[in-house]
Amino acid sequence: MSVLKKISVLGIIGLICTSCSSIDIFKENAEIPIRKPYQTFVIINQEVDMRGFSSQFIDEQVQIKLQEELEKSGMVYDKEQPDVVIRYTSNEDRRQRTSSNYSNPYPYWGYRVWDPWAASRYMNPNYGTKTTNYELLQVIVDFIDPKQDKFLMTLTGVTEVTSPKTKSKRVLSTVDRILDTFISEISQAKE
């Protein structure tokens, strides 16, 4: 395969990946640096029955995802003496986006009689506008050192959800990205 074809294929794959709603991760509240690889953790939401999401189903999925992924990375769930306390919450904000599109779906010739008032954006204020409902979703995960009672970091994942059917999938993808960031921070820590 020629170099030009490889670049074209990679460009198309990149375009497909970026056309989906992105997930942005922000690191905040780093009160103390990560000094060692942590071995044990506890999810405080699970222990005190505190919900972080409006949907109980999504909340349970997030708890399961957090526990499974951290255990895959080699950490152990220990509610008695954890090295890291994990707390999560969410901001689920319903919003609307209005976009303008002044292309006329009914041309002035052909299938209908020309009517300058019906297709005018000046006489009809809703002409050419489209309103889309979406939800701005923030998944906020705090990683706390219980011995010093200070934040190791707060990781916030921000994404947009356009359909209630895809909300659970978007939340879990955001949690994956947050955990990837946390695990990479732990692996780079100095002992």
Rank of each mutant, 00 (worst) to 15 (best):
N126C: 11
N101Y: 06
R95Y: 09
W114C: 05
G74E: 08
F151N: 13
L10N: 03
F53I: 00
Y38P: 01
R94C: 14
E191W: 07
E60K: 06
Y134W: 03
P146S: 01
F57C: 04
V139A: 01
S187C: 11
V76E: 14
S73N: 09
F151G: 08
Y108C: 09
T174W: 00
I140M: 08
A189K: 00
K190S: 12
E160C: 03
P125S: 11
A119T: 12
T166K: 10
W117M: 13
L179W: 00
R97I: 12
R112W: 07
S8P: 12
G14D: 01
C17A: 14
R170I: 00
Y108H: 14
T154G: 03
G52I: 00
K167S: 03
K36H: 07
E47Q: 12
S54C: 11
G14C: 01
G110I: 12
N133T: 11
K169A: 04
L155I: 04
V62N: 05
T162R: 05
K147L: 07
Q81E: 06
R121N: 15
L152G: 02
K27D: 06
N91V: 12
E71I: 08
Q138M: 09
I25Q: 01
D83S: 01
Q96I: 14
I25R: 03
S187M: 06
L179F: 06
Y88T: 02
P82S: 05
R95V: 03
V175F: 06
E135L: 02
G74M: 04
K65R: 15
K167H: 02
V48C: 10
A30I: 04
R177V: 15
P33L: 08
V3L: 15
K165H: 10
I16L: 08
A189Q: 01
D145R: 05
T174C: 07
G157T: 00
F182T: 03
I43K: 00
S19G: 11
D59Q: 06
V3M: 14
Y122S: 13
P164E: 04
S21C: 11
K5A: 11
R94H: 13
N45E: 07
L15A: 10
I34H: 02
W114E: 11
D83H: 09
S103V: 13
D93N: 12
L70V: 05
M1E: 10
F182E: 01
I186C: 07
S22M: 08
I186M: 10
S173E: 11
V85H: 07
R87S: 09
K169T: 13
E68M: 14
Y108M: 13
E69M: 10
Q138F: 03
K150N: 05
I34S: 07
P33H: 03
L172G: 02
E135D: 14
W109H: 15
D49W: 10
V113F: 02
S120N: 06
G14F: 05
N45M: 02
P37A: 13
P107I: 04
N29K: 11
V9I: 04
P116C: 04
S2Y: 13
N124M: 10
K165E: 14
T98G: 12
S103D: 09
L10T: 09
E47V: 12
I13H: 05
S103G: 15
L66K: 00
Y127M: 10
P164F: 09
T156A: 02
K79P: 12
L66E: 00
N126E: 13
R177K: 13
